[in-house]
């Protein structure tokens, strides 16, 4: 076992690749709109469905728009929606899970049954229902994701608090004179907050996919605005005509970025656990 632990690589090879991919994506999202602004309504019918070339590395779509340029704009929307929605979901989940875990008893039982009931419904269906109830747009998409993705965070926070509350180190702190506020702020929250932050990070890829799915179904951003879901949807038409790049390029962008975020979040999760950190010799 000791040999196995020692033979593990100090840095797993996926980590630098994921960091590079995410760094490039964030850099592109921040710099491209400054250096190469995109007119979202512009079309160029003289250069439709051109394959990838040095002038258009991602090719052009059936309206002559640069696919890679629009994918970067689409990624900007996806990341914005993903981060804001994941934070909103974590806040809702953290609050509800915190109440269940700290108060316990009938409050816990009622909240857990509510969570079980919502969990039984398909997320996407619930998301579509929420967007349909509101005016379609960025706000509705964020709300739809926030209200459907808080369940896992609530469960994580609740179970963590229930487990921590009965640990002898909490008993030792109480016996040592710590009041309720100190127990909460010094002994419970510092253990729970990194897990909430990690849940946010792991949720971002889900939220990005959810936004893309809603846009693909025509319930996200207006069709002329670049969003990865809109682009994949539009690209379907060109696929049959041989213009594979119009769907593949935005698809590859979302796969690469969500995988990179998930890999870095997994790495962070390992780093947060002192036992795993010691085992990996980090």
């Amino acid at each position: 076992m000791a040999d196995l632990a020692l033979s593990r690589p100090r840095i797993r090879p996926g980590t630098p690749v994921a960091a590079l991919v995410l760094g490039a994506a964030v850099g592109a999202v921040l710099l491209v709109p400054l250096l190469l602004p995109l007119d979202q309504s512009a079309v160029a019918l003289d250069r439709t469905t051109l394959p990838p070339s040095p002038a258009h590395p991602g090719g052009t779509d059936d309206l002559g728009r640069d696919v890679l340029h629009r994918s970067i704009y689409g990624l900007r929307v996806s990341l914005l929606v993903g981060v804001v929605a994941a934070v909103a979901a974590a806040l809702v989940g953290g609050l509800i899970g915190g109440l269940a875990g700290l108060l316990g008893g009938w409050v816990d039982r009622i909240l857990m049954r509510v969570i079980d009931t919502i969990s039984a419904l398909p997320h996407l269906l619930l998301g579509i229902f929420i967007v349909a109830m509101l005016r379609p747009g960025l706000g509705a998409v964020i709300l739809s994701i926030g209200l459907t993705h808080w369940l896992s965070t609530a469960r994580i926070v609740r179970s963590e608090l229930l487990s921590l509350r009965t640990r002898p180190f909490i008993d030792a702190a109480i016996a040592g004179g710590a009041g309720r506020t100190r127990i909460l702020t010094r002994h419970l929250l510092p253990h729970v907050l990194p897990k909430i932050a990690l849940a946010v990070t792991l949720m971002i890829p889900h939220a990005v996919w959810h936004e893309t799915s809603l846009s693909f179904l025509g319930l996200g951003l207006p069709p002329h605005l670049a969003s990865l879901g809109n682009m994949i949807n539009d690209g379907q038409r060109s696929l049959l005509a041989g213009a594979w790049w119009s769907s593949i390029v935005p698809g590859a962008v979302i796969v690469a970025v969500t995988l990179a975020i998930a890999a870095l979040a997994g790495r962070w999760r390992d780093h947060l656990d002192p036992r795993v950190r010691a085992e990996l010799n980090l």
Partner: peptide, 12 residues
Amino acid sequence: AVLFQSPRAASD
């Protein structure tokens, strides 16, 4: 004051 059996479980 209490001294528990498992110091690991009793330490933050």
